[in-house]
Amino acid sequence: MATTETGSVDSVLGREPLVHRRPRLAILLGRDWQVSSLFVVPMLVVLVGFIAYPFLSAIWLSLNSKMIGGEAHFVGLANYQKLLGDSAFRRVATTSAIYTFFGVGLKFIVGLIAALVLHEALRPKNLWRMLLFLPWSIPVVIGAYTWRWLYDDMSGVLSQTLLQLGLTKDYVLWLANKDLTLRSILAVVVWQGTPFYMMNFLAGLAAIPGELYEAAEVDGAGVLRKFLHITLPGLVPVIIIVLMLSTIWTANDMQYVYILTRGGPQGVSEVFPYYAYKTAIEVKNLALGATVPLMFFPFLAIIMYFLTGRMLEED
């Protein structure tokens, strides 16, 4: 590339000239644009073809009426209006909010306790950590089926044990009793989701310098003060990232509800991702189903925006 510059001071001195005469495209697109485009094309096919395009087509679909196998007709915002006016959808929104709030909150509390205890735990620490991580490693479907069996009305171990201990007078309908269903589902959500919090909090705890605690002990600080003034502030960056990621994942998960209750009894445990699945695939109303998660997307987009900022910052 430097050949056109022969005779300049730089090339006489054996240095690269400061200004290359590059092809125009290289100036416009960057030095390595040719190799780079070859390297990023496969990734762009996935990002654009299978994420961005489907996302945009979901928005387009939500502006149409379309059943599986049927023709699409543009209907404007009719799907959105239909959902907003539907009392079943309003109940789904409330259930989703409760489900996400308590799911995330409980996982946070149990995960923090688990991490603090494990951080202090007696040997063999690695074994305890490995065992406590197990629920997160297995498929959610398998965790949910296992609990469905534990929750079985008549043959389930939980119901039978309570009966045998005389704590209840009758079989407990963990999933069929309207007042218990959501709590029973949340217990499974917490069981399987807590290890994610625990592992990240453990990593956060390990990163807090031990000298801080020693200095605090010299000053006579107790357990509570050390926790409030050293541990918790040290964990804040991890806590923020974990809470944001987990809120997105918890809110958008349909697996526990699908396996444990299919939204029952009488729809009390329907969360929006399950409602979307039911509407689009089981009722075959694709367009209305696609509209359901989009109604919640603005909330999600706010979290995604802040989370992305954090991730780029960390990098």
């Binding site: 489907p54 087509s57 991702p273």
Partner: peptide
């Protein structure tokens, strides 16, 4: 989230 993508991906 997959909850947003699964319907258009199905199509």
């Amino acid at each position: 989230p997959p909850a947003v993508l699964f319907i258009p991906l199905f199509q």
